[in-house]
């Protein structure tokens, strides 16, 4: 124990709050931990690898003829829709994994360290943007292979990808909240699917809205997912940037974070 010495209590400068810069630093360290974990267990990337490939293929060939006459004409509709659906669904895994992670002993250590309380949560959510990025890239790649050439060009595709990743990150706070309050990981999965499934399918992601009954159209138009899908379509297909759909998507994302991040942190701290 030669070089393990103790710093006496009296010689420490102690404060009872965490600064913003420390919170950010702690969160990035926790994100680094998340990335290390992904590197150690790459099999957890299974879903974000295969879901984009299989869903894009499946939906394009199932609905293509019916909705747009042929597969090629359907691509500008389905690729943005499928992108949003796939990436947002991926954010459920964030909540499920957080629940599993929190049951492990290492979270006790995180709680006993003088770090920002939000860091273990924010870090986990930050690391998961890697998953969203993989899903985004693969969905566009599948589209490209199937002959999709977005009019907006590469730059707009990248911007649209970032928009979807940011919004999914925001949505993942909702599932993180479920993750923190739920008793088991499978119940997080259950609740989250129950909410997200109708939201993603009762939208304009796969089919034109005017083919739906009136009452459903009302819901689809109100659904924030529809606005995100429209914003992405505008960007990649017509280079339109800054329409009301984009604003609604970003404001919606900001509201979700402003609401659920504090809720989640509070629940996390209470759950001790």
């Amino acid at each position: 124990m030669s070089n393990v010495s103790i710093t006496p209590e009296i010689r420490r400068s102690l404060k009872n709050h965490t600064s913003l810069s420390q919170s950010v630093r702690n969160s990035f360290t926790m994100a680094y931990r998340g990335l290390l974990k992904i590197r150690r267990t790459p099999e957890q990337l299974f879903d974000v690898t295969f879901q984009p490939i299989i869903f894009t293929l499946m939906f394009t060939y199932i609905f293509g003829g019916a909705v747009s006459g042929n597969v090629y004409n359907y691509l500008p509709i389905i690729i943005p829709g499928n992108l949003v659906q796939t990436v947002i669904t991926t954010s459920i895994v964030t909540g499920v994994q957080l629940r599993e992670d929190m049951d492990k002993g290492v979270f006790d250590r995180f709680k006993s360290l003088p770090i920002a309380r939000i860091a273990p949560l924010a870090g986990a959510l930050l690391a998961d943007t890697v998953r969203y990025t993989i899903a985004t890239v693969l969905t566009f790649a599948m589209g490209y292979i199937m002959g999709y050439r977005p009019n907006g060009g590469f730059g707009h595709v990248v911007l649209a990808g970032i928009l979807v990743i940011v919004c999914s990150w925001a949505v993942s706070w909702i599932f993180a909240f479920f993750g923190v309050i739920a008793r088991t990981a499978s119940s997080v999965q259950g609740i989250s699917m129950l909410i997200l499934f109708p939201l993603t399918f009762l939208s304009n992601a796969y089919v034109p809205v005017d083919t739906m009954p009136k009452w459903l159209q009302w819901f689809v138009h109100a659904n924030p997912i529809s606005h995100l899908v429209s914003a992405v379509r505008d960007m990649v297909n017509t280079s339109a940037f800054g329409g009301s759909d984009l604003v609604i998507s970003l404001v919606g994302a900001a509201i979700i974070v402003a609401l659920f991040a504090p809720l989640t942190v509070r629940a996390y701290m209470r759950r001790t």
Binding site: H17, K104, D108
Partner: peptide, 18 residues
Amino acid sequence: QIVRQLIGVTGQYASVDE
């Protein structure tokens, strides 16, 4: 937060990342 700066905790069950 001050107390946490003064303590080290080794829990009954391993509190390290498996």
